[in-house]
Design a protein around this nucleic acid. Structure first.
Lengths: 148, 148
DNA sequence: GGATGATAGTTTAAACTTAAATCATTTAAC
DNA sequence: GTTAAATGATTTAAGTTTAAACTATCATCC
């Protein structure tokens, strides 16, 4: 049976890691997403374009899963992207509950233009860690992030 | 001079770490903050109460720095906490631009009641990693999070 | 000691996000 | 086949967040 002291130590270690994790993500996100403002893209909008760019057309549910956002939010995000002509919705004939959301040519052009800079910014920010450290960070985050 | 191939590898490693980091924080935050809804506390409100609990009275600027939020947001958060009688603002006589924001007894009681459960939830979630891994995650996040 | 600039906080408008209720469509069970 | 349950998407109302403009106070410097 663990003593109180051991319990304290366990909590302390967990809390320290947790706090550092959240704070780190805050500063990193802020640094890497700053440049999106000049394109009038929210993080959710950019994330959606990026997902479509990377994975091809997706239904809104899958976009939501990818971005960890609610369905209502995805509706709004896709609405706004559609208004700007960056994506299109297409009803899926084989299951008419679904929309397939896809990049338009304009959307394709925009994300293709933004991505190099975005990747560059991320690479620069992450290069505070060497590749071995990056690998270890990834491993730990993946282990920790397995949903629950 | 690095070859293109090396550049690709460097980007790939950075991006993988970055994506895992953001996704991990998303799932961890969602898991650890779910219980706050039952107390009708937003994450920002809880963060403010916690900061005041941990550090004692703070001015709004310092709360904002702690939470990585804008000044306008802190005004709203403190307004709402004050309406519920959980915190009080006090003008600082020595510099009347500042408010000192402090927990009321009610606020103190609330945060004292919530914290054990919150810590427990975090500890449980983080215990996917052993203490050595937690320590390493903390180190990497701190290194990465140094502002910029 | 008065102008200038910096800092703390507030307000406003617009955008984002969520939870909950709702609509439309499909699947399963009978 | 028809009903019931499940699923994808939308709507609504409420709350959160931000940027930008604004007020109030303090510090500096001539």
């Amino acid at each position: 049976m663990p003593t109180h002291h051991q319990g304290d130590q366990k909590e302390k270690s967990a809390l320290n890691a947790y706090i550092s994790l959240l704070r780190c993500t805050g500063t990193v996100t802020s640094a890497t997403c700053r440049h999106l403002a000049s394109e009038k893209l929210s993080i959710g909008q950019f994330g959606t374009l990026e997902a479509l760019h990377h994975l091809g057309p997706l239904c809104q549910r899958d976009i939501g899963k990818k971005l960890l956002k609610t369905g209502g939010n995805i509706t709004t995000v896709v609405d706004n992207l559609e208004k700007r002509g960056l994506v299109v919705r297409r009803k899926m004939p084989e299951d008419r509950r679904y929309y397939s959301v896809a990049l338009t040519e304009t959307g394709q052009d925009l994300i293709a233009r933004i991505m190099p800079r975005h990747i560059e910014t991320i690479t620069a920010k992450m290069s505070v860690l060497n590749s071995q450290e990056q690998e270890e960070l990834r491993r730990l985050c993946r282990k920790l992030g397995l949903e629950g």
